[in-house]
Nucleic acid binder design. Structure first.
Lengths: 228, 228
DNA sequence: TATTTAATGTCGACG
DNA sequence: CGTCGACGTTAAATA
């Protein structure tokens, strides 16, 4: 990993064209050839960058300034960095990173709700996780107290897309005689957070919304495991 | 902007929980308080980070190691960085960045198609850009050779969401007597690239698909401007 | 390898 | 300030 602080200007050409006027920035050159150009603000996204796999050629422009040409290996994306003045330039050997361990993403939410379907609606029991249909898997297929089928779509953040997705599943499921024998399939849209528009659309389509409390679910799960 | 290279471990708690085992990494501390933790690989996304607005408190852990506690201002997200050894530590004043200038995004695509609607379908003429409806603006409202209304939805990459969006517009527009007087409103889904699933769904709903060649359109536009 | 889906998405525009 | 849609989305899982 090489870190350079320099007054520079940058031009990108690829899926779009973009330009950065002359200013002082931080350039990170990773060992896989990728380059990040960071300013002292914004979020974690660099102002401009080149993703690996790519190569960097260091050269000199016509006017004598240092010029770095970064080229993507697979596409014809290019990044040109013209350097006026280098303020800092160091390299460090970081080795290979062991990587990030995550907990609390949608998959975990689905696992916990599969264990505790009754938190979505009284008397709900699990039939199957990842119930396959022609257009993809329904997160949870359940049965309610009256024995009717209930399709559950789980999102961390419930937005309009999720409601559309569940609607497509319900349209399809309600044509399946095996499921509709005892009546139509209901839908439940479950998420840690549900956006107003999504809630309106769901309600309009007769789909119930359920807010999920991840910490509470995890607590229930822990309490259960302590019994063994 | 402060740049630190250090052997460290990191714990994040917020919308999820995550952990980084002990390893050598680059820590970027931006002047707005935000922190990025980069390894020597991956793409531009850091292994872990805290977005502004946030504050960093430098302290000492029980075992004597340096400990940085980063707290988000608005949420209760926290990032804890435990430092075993500092290999590098420098600060630089970068000033305010003039920012990135972009060209070639969806807005430009819409401008070009508004100039040349006939590239979407023979005889198509523009009625209005950003035609407002109760659920949002239709990108292009056109009229075909027979004088019938055509709604155009433009995407850079055509996916299933875009088809759903256009479908909602068409449902609404076909209830509008002013437009349906002469017949029903057709839809055209235009994009530089159309995913197979999106194409299937569009076709199933009687929506035409049109692939857009940005460079060709820009060429037509340039040729036109040269006449003046 | 190609495609589909989730994401601590981020970012900008608009009401 | 919140909502919504685009993004050089990126990145991971899956077919």
């Amino acid at each position: 990993m090489r870190i350079v602080v320099a007054r520079c200007q940058v031009d990108y050409a690829g899926r779009l064209t973009a330009h950065l006027p002359l200013a002082t920035r931080v350039l990170m050159l990773k060992s896989d050839g990728s380059v990040l150009i960071h300013s002292d603000g914004g979020s974690y996204k660099p102002l401009n960058w080149m993703s690996p796999p790519c190569t960097v050629r260091e050269g000199v422009a016509e006017d004598g300034r240092a010029e770095w040409l970064v080229s993507a290996t697979k596409s014809d994306d290019t990044l040109r960095i013209l350097i006026d003045e280098v303020l800092h330039d160091t390299s460090h050997d970081l080795g290979v990173d062991p990587g990030l361990q995550k907990d609390g993403v949608e998959k975990h939410l689905q696992e916990l709700l599969a264990e505790h379907p009754a938190t979505l609606a009284d008397g709900l029991t699990l039939v199957r996780r990842e119930y396959m249909t022609a257009i993809g898997p329904v997160d949870l297929m359940c049965r309610d107290a009256e024995g009717l089928s209930v399709a559950v779509e789980i999102k961390r953040r419930g937005e309009i897309d999720g409601v559309e997705q569940l609607t497509r599943y319900l349209d399809l499921l309600n044509r399946d005689p095996a499921l509709t024998r005892k009546g139509s399939v209901r839908g439940i849209f479950a998420a840690q957070e549900i956006k107003p528009q999504a809630r309106v659309l769901a309600t309009d389509r007769g789909i119930a919304c359920a807010l999920v409390d991840y910490d509470a679910l995890r607590g229930m799960d822990d309490a259960e495991h302590r019994l063994f």
